[in-house]
Amino acid sequence: MRLSLNSRLSAFSALLPALLVMLVVYVGATSWTVWMSLTNSRMLPNNNFVGLRQYEMLLGNDRWITSVHNIVIYGVLLVSLALVVGFLLAVAIDQRVRAEDTIRSIYLYPYSMSFIVTGLVWQWLLNPTLGIQHVLRSWGFEGATFDWIVRPETAIYCLVIAGVWQASGLVMAIMLAGLRGVDEEIWKAARVDGLPKWRVYVSIIVPMMGASFATAAVLLSTGVVRLYDLSVSMTNGGPGIASEVPAKFVMDHLFERANIGLATAAATTMLITVIAVVAPYLYWRARKGGMR
């Protein structure tokens, strides 16, 4: 469709704030981050160029390696579980259930609370001497064992449990918005054809909701890469460095450890990884048929 000059100007004017923000804030701040990673900045930014030394230090750092490893495990599990759980919750709510507002709020409330305290509550619940294991044993299940959080090999899965608890509600809301955007005609047509309901969901609705899934997946993924509060309040990266994550590495080195050089090197590495994943995807989408 050819656009008139007028429309084109309007569209451009709508994009102006976004362009401005991208150029001034993001491009500027990102360049600053990359530059800092090439210096030996400690507490305050300085301009002493040291080449790639910070990156060498980073790659030799056990904690960074563990963090990267952890975020992959966490990311895969969290995104897939939250999408599945969130979608199922949305479908359940979409069945015209009683007290819909209340049920939806129950699923959503974890999202409203900051992890500063809810992380602590999860820590208590999963702690073997205090939480679920303790309660089960006091009920007479002597052999009950649920001590993932104190074992280095499994602590990261505890973050997933709390992460899914927090994020599923939001996924549910996005899915519900998607479901309610589905044309009523489609349901009518399916009814006329006598299709079972689950088949309508699997064969018709899910494929139609690609955009909702994509939106939820991207939002979840940004949360994964930025994962910080939960790790701090629930395990503080422990036991040892077993549940450390990259954003926490960046934050700890940026402020508490006064090592801006290393922190920005870690952040730049994260940035490059994200570009390496996102760019091919966007390119593929653009090739596939532009915007629509």
Binding site: V25, Y26, T30, T33, V225, A247, V250, A263, A267
Partner: peptide, 20 residues
């Protein structure tokens, strides 16, 4: 533009504090 926005959505925003 959209691609660039998606990329920055992944950066821990705390990094932007100093420059901002």
């Amino acid at each position: 533009l959209f691609g660039a926005m998606m990329v920055v959505a992944f950066i821990p925003y705390q990094l932007f504090i100093y420059p901002l």
